[in-house]
Every structure is written in C-alpha cells, then in structure tokens.
Design a protein around this nucleic acid. Structure first.
Lengths: 215, 215
DNA sequence: ATAGTTCGGTGATTTTTATCACCGTTTGAA
DNA sequence: TTCAAACGGTGATAAAAATCACCGAACTAT
C-alpha cells in the first residue's frame, strides 16, 4: 500500500530493518468521513497510525460526545498502545474527519518491535507526549475560556486543518464537538458575525480571522 | 536512601541488573507540603519518581492554577519524560501534597536504560498511560458535571488519598484546585451541609459520604 | 497585645450557559 | 414531487457560575 520512502516520511528516525518489517506486517484500512476507527468501550488488537487524512479523538460520557483533539498524518492514535499489553476496553473514540487511510500494526509485532528497537520506543513515547499535550491544551481551554473564545479557536483550528476559510460545519456538529447545545452555538455565531469574525452562508461558515488564538 | 527490596515494590517487573543500576544513580529529595517539584515553564534534567507521599499535577493559565490529577507512590511524574529528550519547557507543575520523598533519575541514565532495558520502557509506557487516563477522567468531569458534583468527587478523592474523613482544606484552596472562586465553594459547601453530605467544623471539613461518585 | 492576614459568610448583581418551545427553511431520500 | 429529517433562528426562562462588596472571626507574627 505504501513504500518505504513514504513510511519514512511518516515515521522518521527508525532503524533501517524496522521499515521493511513494518511494511511486511502492516494492513491498511480506508475510512470515509465520520466512521469510527476506534470505539470507546471496545478492545483493540492493532495499533492505528494515520497515513492520510485527519482523525478526531472523542470522549463520551452521559450521552455527551465531545472532541478531545486531532490526530494528523504520521501520528499514531497512540493512547491505545497500552491496551495492547493489558487487555482493557479503551476509554475514547477515534473518528475519521475526512477520507482517511490508516495503517494497522498487529499487537504481536508491535510488542516485538518495542522490545527490539529502541527507536520504535522513542516514536511511541513521542506520540504519547503529543497526545498528552494536546489533551492538556484542550483541558486548559475548557477551564479558562468561555464558549465564545473556544468557538473561535475551534474554527481556526478547523480552518488550519482543512486549509480553507470555508468550513462546512453544522451548528449541531460544532455544539457536539464543544460539548454544548446547538442554540448556544447559533447565538454565538450570530454575535461573531456582527463582529466581522465570520460570515454565515447557506451551506457553510466563512472565517474572516486567521490563526488568532491558536496556542 | 532506599534498598532494592523497596524499589521493587515501587517499580515491579524490571530487569534484575536495572535495580542495582537505578539505586546506584538515584538521588533523593524531600519536599514538605506545598513545595514545587516541577514548575511549569522550567526545564528538566531528571525524571522524578514518587516514593512516599502524594504529588499534585497542576496546570496554570491566565493566573488560574488548577488541579489535573494526583501522582501516587511508585508512580512517576512521567509526562516530563519526553522533555528529557527534547529540551522544552514543561507545561504543568507538580506540587507535593504532603511530606514527599522523590527519587530523581538523571537524564543521561534514563535515556540509557530506556534503550537497553525494554522492561524500563514498559514502565514508562505504563505511566504515560496512567497519566493520560487520569487527565482524561478530569477533562470528562469538567465537561459533564457541574461544580457541586465535582466538589463532592474532589472531597471523596481527598478523603481516599489521606485515609480520613476529616479534611483540612480551606475553601480558597479547594476553589483553586477546581478552577473556580472561593465564594462558589462556600455556597456549595453550605448547601452540601444542609444535605448532610458534609459538616463544616472550625478547622476542617468532615465528609459524611464515602466513595460515592468516584470513577 | 495588636496589627495584618487569612478565612469564611452572604447579599446583590451580572454573565454565561442550558433548556424548552416553536417556527420556517433546506435538504435528501423515496 | 413530496415528505420526513436536519438545520438554523429566536424568544422566554432557568440554572449555574462569576464578580463585587462588605463583614466579622480567627489566626499569626512581631
């Protein structure tokens, strides 16, 4: 599905032998927008690594589903790694944002690589770190900022990810991502429109500010 | 400062040689209640592992300081691990809750162990996992529960940690941990007192419920 | 002893967020 | 084409949290 060249771009600094080994053992899955790659409460027997597209990490609680952070190409949904060693249900969900290509590494091999290749371990650590920092960022935002600021930040982030200012998002889905209700988003977007921060079109939201407030 | 026996209790399942190596290279620091072990914005040249006492993980933002989760004996404040490899300021603080004994492992050695001992890597992974799950739990609580429920949970947790129902906490410090203001806590504790969930004494709060609502 | 500080209580008010109710429009599928 | 579902707007209201202001009690260091 992918060659060594490509894999090196995604996961640099691994041991030479490891690249061939990974390619020999990987399987691939394509996901269309909105599909579950990992479902909260399920068990895992593979480690997913994003090759193309963006994955949203979600948490669910009391029928509320909210966005934690994003996984970009070359990154692994690494928080499922430990679940490879200890067989416990995972406590978040991963959902494809767009068309997504995911490389799946089998548990057995991942364990083996982790033991035999320190460079693989470093990649794992690095991804853990990144996941943790992203979650921490999100947590800080929730505590420190009010919904209006969080919404702006959210839109800027979306804009960055998709490389456009025209965001095809329903108020409902935004509300869900931010853990609030549609009405709240409707009112805030209206307010932001009056402040020339965005324009609401028929089918999308046009963002008028750039990277503002992105940490 | 500690012998091999003791170290094994804290960090089980390591390679035999590693225990002697760790003990040979560790230094120790004692902290009294409320001292900073790790300060947000600083750089690290050691990996702290808690031997005795409890450590609070804090985040700071906009002059608001709030509790993320606790580190118990045998656990490492592992999120600083990656900062050993890439020299970046850390984005949280660790503060001793009580009298605390911390073992400090030097960067150089930690890197070496990580490469040479897969069992050490597993411990690291395990601690990353735990830290992440704790933070995720906190994040879910913040989004899904209102302050009243979070306060009850917070008090239950404190009670568990210190093994007593008599909690010596000021409203101010509770407010800080939960990221709100003193008045809010004062009003909620009053309400909870009327519901027989707790009693406020001169110098402390007596909790009347047990593990209720602890996830 | 006393002066300054921390602590907790509480009223008043505002801000922020949530919830309910209802309505018209748009969209997509049969 | 038609009908149900999704979407968005908005008023009314309630709930939750934040903010300001002020008070007295308790504690602490000199």
């Amino acid at each position: 599905m992918i060659d060594q060249q490509r894999l090196k771009q995604c996961l640099p600094a691994l041991h030479k032998d490891l690249y061939t080994d990974i390619i020999a053992n990987a399987t691939y899955e394509k996901f269309s927008s909105g599909q579950h790659i990992v479902r909260q409460g399920a068990y895992l027997d593979f480690l997913p690594i994003v090759l193309d597209g963006v994955i949203k990490m979600y948490a669910e609680e009391d029928n509320v589903q909210f966005l934690l952070y994003y996984i970009n190409p070359g990154e692994s949904c690494i928080m499922s790694f430990n679940h490879l060693f200890v067989q416990e249900p995972i406590n978040f969900s991963a959902v494809s944002e767009d068309q997504t290509l995911v490389m799946c590494l089998p548990v057995r091999k991942v364990k083996e690589w982790f033991v035999n290749y320190p460079s693989f371990g470093k990649v794992i650590i690095n991804d853990y770190q990144r996941n943790f920092e992203d979650l921490l960022r999100t947590t800080k935002d929730i505590i420190c900022f009010k919904m209006e600021d969080r919404l702006i930040k959210y839109l800027c982030k979306k804009s960055n990810l998709s490389n456009t200012n025209n965001l095809h998002l329903s108020h409902q889905s935004i509300a869900s991502d931010l853990g609030t209700s549609r009405e709240v988003i409707s009112r805030i977007t209206k307010k932001l429109e009056s402040q020339d921060i965005l324009i609401q079109h028929k089918r999308h939201i046009e963002l008028l500010v750039s990277d503002r407030m992105i940490a």
